[in-house]
Design a protein around this nucleic acid. Structure first.
Lengths: 242, 242
DNA sequence: CGCTATCTTGAATCCCTTCAAGTCGCGTGG
DNA sequence: CCACGCGACTTGAAGGGATTCAAGATAGCG
């Protein structure tokens, strides 16, 4: 079930072929992209690009997870988004990025030289249409997260985060296997607008309440999904999309 | 300097002609839009569309201000964005809206039937390109606001908000005229993730510190712009875009 | 002129943070 | 093999900033 990504395979075998900026492209358009792309791998913890840096490439995450974040002068940092496979880095039409981008795990990127990509946006409607779709989806997800940051309690924030991790975990839920937190306590805290101590306390509290169990510090199983969803503070139907 | 918007004028005289979804359109494309548009006015305080409602139109704000917000079951409300002239409501490709949209002032919309607009997105690259641009800008602004919601103190939030109001006020600053808060204390609170009492206290505090003076509850003048900008918590260069 | 919505201000409370100490797991090297 | 060190995490206690609850002031409007 898990594709092993191989750079030598063509776009046709790319794991994000049908979700990335190229999703709407036909074979002809894809072959143009094929000639333009280059891959780059960034190791866990390494910066991908800093806020304000000149943006030479527009990239898509092929594998791994990256974070978008901003740090205030005094060190407070807020993670404003996680970039999962198929998400893109950089905006056509902008010369710099507005946030720091960091590899949370090892990350492989599929990159296009920015100027060339901007030309593609002009010439290939399927590209601008797809980037539009993706940007609108991200926008909705970002606004959803604003509700969490502005109005939810620590308990609700943690529950929402866990529920999100469970919902979009690639590992099938029915298999009964534990899920894995992709972030450290500190990274979770910076994503939720909390301190790492509060994150730790809330996770312990949910464990004590029988909502979760932990196999180790990263791996957990949900014991009571209904309780978890109740604790998010959201309506039954409306969930985070991210 | 202030255009009086007149529905009978053509798109050529529209006050948002060069900023809205039609910005990149040429005369021919514009004449197509001309035949499709309809106007609607919503009074201050009235809902424009509720979260989850079927979205029959894609609209642009021509004049006035609208808010995007979400309310949790227990009444906590978070404003996730303000819609100013040229901003659009609704996403091509989505059948519903994810947030409540409310007229903060009297609002005039320029509307397109959603299905027709989606067809335009397919057929007219200038439209999808422009919507893409706008969505990417909104996305960046939303993430910027996430930093505020997640990490800034009440004082910093208020300073950032005031600074934003001042920066994009249509009334020229050099005229020395007072600026006007477009929102009530409660609306400001819901935008900043605070309570209305805290907003009031912080405004009083900034008044006491000689940063601002108030002519009345809505109209104010900045006395010390440097102090205001210092208080935002942002770097000197990096500002909110919204 | 008084009604009402909006806003201000005060006092008490609370949730989260801050500061601090200690635990756990793991790789490294003696 | 185990001591050691280190990063990640947990837990406790104290403190503080924002909220909550409450009372009163102000301004707009019929």
């Amino acid at each position: 079930m898990n594709f092993v990504f191989n750079e030598r395979d063509g776009c046709g075998k790319c794991p994000i072929r049908h979700r990335a900026v190229c999703a709407r492209c036909d074979e002809d358009e894809l072959s143009v992209l094929e000639g333009m792309k280059s891959y780059k791998t960034i190791e866990q913890g390494e910066p991908i690009i800093w806020r304000g840096d000149d943006l030479h490439h527009i990239s898509s995450v092929v594998s791994g997870i990256a974070s978008l974040s901003r740090t205030l002068e005094d060190g407070r940092t807020q993670v404003v988004g996680l970039l999962l496979p198929s998400d893109f880095i950089g905006s056509p039409g902008r010369q710099t990025v507005d946030f720091d981008v960091t590899a949370v795990t090892d990350v492989t990127l599929c990159r296009f030289e920015r100027r060339s990509f901007e030309k593609l946006v002009q010439d290939v409607p399927h590209i601008s249409q797809r980037v539009m779709e993706m940007a609108l989806d991200e926008l909705s997800a970002a606004r959803e997260w604003m509700v969490l940051l502005g109005r939810k309690t620590a308990r609700e924030k943690i529950a929402t985060f866990i529920e999100m991790v469970v919902r979009r975990d690639t590992v099938p839920i029915h298999a009964g296997q534990p899920h894995t937190l992709p972030l450290t306590r500190e990274e979770i805290a910076n994503f939720l607008g909390l301190t790492l101590e509060t994150v730790s306390r809330q996770l312990s509290s949910m464990k004590k309440d029988g909502v979760l169990t932990f196999e180790d510090r990263r791996r957990f199983t949900v014991l009571d999904l209904a309780a978890l969803q109740d604790a998010t503070g959201d309506d039954a139907d409306g969930g985070i999309i991210v």
